[in-house]
Design a binder for these strands. Sequence first.
RNA 1: GCCGGUGUGGUGAAAUUGGUAGACACGAUGGACUCAAAAUCCAUUGCCUUAAACAAGCGUGUCGGUUCGAGUCCGACCACCGGUACCA
Length: 806
Amino acid sequence: MSEFIPGYNHKTIEAKWQERWQKHACFQAENFSEKPKYYALVEFPYPSGVGMHIGHMRAYMSLEVISRKRRMEGYNVMFPLGFDAFGLPTENYALKHNIHPRTVTDDNIASFLEHIKKTGFSFDLSRKVDTTDPEYYKFTQWIFLKMYEHDLVYRSKTYVNFCPDCKVVLSNEESQGGSCDRCGSDVVQKEKDVWFLKITAYAEKLLEGLKHFDSPQRIATEQEKWIGKSFGAEMRFPLKDQPDYLEVFTTRPDTVFGATFMVIAPEHQIIDRYKDTIHNMDAIEAYRQQAKLKTEFERVQLQKDKSGVRLEGLMAMNPFTQRPIPIFIADYVMITYGTGAIMAVPGHDQRDYDFAKKYDLPIIEVIQGGDLSQAAFTDIEQGILINSGFLNGLSVKQAIHTMIQHLESQNLGHEKIQYKMKDWAFNRQRYWGEPIPIIYCPTCGIQPVPYEDLPVRLPMVEHFQPTESGDSPLANIESFIHCSCPKCKGPARRETDTMPQWAGSSWYFLRYMDPKNPEVLASMDLLKYWGPIDWYNGGMEHVTRHLIYSRFWNHFLHDIGVVPFGEPYLKRTAQGLILGEDGEKMSKSRGNVVNPLEIISEYGADTLRAYILFIGDYEMATPWNENGLKGCRRFLDKIWRLIPKVVDRPEQSDAIETSVHKTIKGVNDDYENLKFNTAIAKMMTLVNEMGQLDHVRRHDFEVLLKLLNPIAPHLCEEVWEMLAHKTMLVAESWPTFDPEKLIEDQVEIVININGKVRDKMMLEVDADDARVTERALEREKVREWIQDKPIRKIIVVTNKLINIVI
RNA sequence: GCCGGUGUGGUGAAAUUGGUAGACACGAUGGACUCAAAAUCCAUUGCCUUAAACAAGCGUGUCGGUUCGAGUCCGACCACCGGUACCA
């Protein structure tokens, strides 16, 4: 790795300009400037121990280029960075090495900042935020309390992964394959009280907002699918011989005449309600126990193999056929979706069909068009209702509509819009997170912490090991737990759970606009000036979680009048992964990780920045290849070697004038469209052309420096200074092109014969069809091909080609 | 299974609305410079036939279609990557 590379000295040049930019605060955004504002945002990092990796650099480089370009275009640019520093890896590292997470976090942030500087990023670090700073999480807690005040927070029971041996709650990641990460014993589902944020109340707003969201289709589609809106009906099925009913959600109310049984989730309450009526409770309980033990992993494996148990002694009535139908419990019905109960229509739902075949239940055809001896017929675009009373003869869509009207008029049910998105389980049994600002009083019950008592500080203690009971480590800290009730002033206990990793990142982009404000999360004036975010870039992996969560919080803050805009992001893009040289995802365990600091030391930051952009399509995954790096370094060295050729005299300028203007246009457009790889290729071409000349006109060379500056700013500043400029390149304006200069006077016309290239000729620009034809037919090669065959057709594309069909 | 994406030289990859496939770069080969090497510069570099081409043929995952003309559009399929998971 210590190969000697001649050319410019990147070490001295890069350090020099990094110092100078810092000294002159070149990248500080100015509040209320006269210039138009531009807010470019990248996802803030989790400051892990290894510091910045190649993936971070790629994620930041797009808007780094755009920010530097925007500044030259005359915008007041805010391009901030901060740290999302709460989280499990830090806590685990701290436990293992017996260092406090605060110390670990501070160290990691310091080294990350050092890496940022060494790569020459133009972040405004005077605005940096740290989610673990009490002055920051004070407002994270404040937002939680506001949501509590507006009934968007509730407490409810849910099932969590639990290891009975370790007595600890596990995350999905810690219980993969159904066994505990620590001891290997089987994980069970345990019911637990959980704080929920009612994000489903914002489902419609989040969906609606996507319409005004500038992003590649894949990003909007993923969010749409995550929200998972479906349209249907809720309807009631009476129980036989009981004054009671089962309510189901269905997207196919039209098929109700074909409902021959019902299935409810194992957890459904009706089972306990009728435990004296049901006479096979032993079998039911056994199945419920078994379902509880089933992990996510097993459920996936057993997907096709449906099992269930019939409730003996309890039947439902199909309200339309008036026939009694059996009720089953089966784990293919989820308690968390819809009503936890379904009407099973085996003729027109594949899962119900499989279940009916297994348990030998009747299958009734109510929509004509399929072959029910083979599979359920589920096509909603075609098929006519049969065996369905008043629906007979209707199409599926008509029948759905008619049925819903009927249900509502007869008071049997109603239209229902259902979402797949679930409310957000908002607590974790962990130390290194924001304490949830709630107090339990033995007399007054659950009490929110008064706003003026915020922040509820995380106690800085030495021991924060997880507890045996599965409670948060905070439950062991006496000084934290005990407090007084805000209402009756009597002794009370604090909530000991903390917020999830996603909390602090759900509003950080607002804090950048006013990072030091002690009173409010950000002042209205500054929010109005800077917001919303003009361009947000980040990873695809955050599109469904972080993006949805943060949009939810922002909409809420907008609704309560704290933030002046509903949708926080005007535009969102996502970078592709950089894979290891072996084409696999970079990871420590695979040993294919590339360390940016080593590359910077050997080749320089500018080379690394250029290569990260040149490596391939920015939005797609691509493998790392160290050889490509050398090409980028050679490109920068070539520019360095051009310096002696630079002259003030204008002769020679005509030779590459068109190229210069074309390059300005091409590079400009490519930057805006994230096509950095082709932008660099265009500049390489221009540099190669300049290399052919004896002299390079100063103006042309300076255009090149400006275009390249967003990518290789250190080198460009240095060369700019060598050209006897007193001001910095960061303060220069972005080059423009003259559309007239793009036009060449001669173009190459391709001559096709029967669609195959047979000849080429140079011709003046915009020659008309007749002239192109005439000149083409004069050509010897063309005549040889045609000989005496008749010409059937001639197609001319101006300035491009002529196709002669014979 | 479903949804999304991708498939182009030895390699990373380019290619406005269908209009010269392989830009740019890496690597490789030959040459110049050098005592030599590195660096730099020049030339060649999709495959095949050929002594060589100024020549012909083939070529963008597979098969078929539309068109004067298809990497690009349409239909069927295959492979890989990512997301998701019994959502009624």
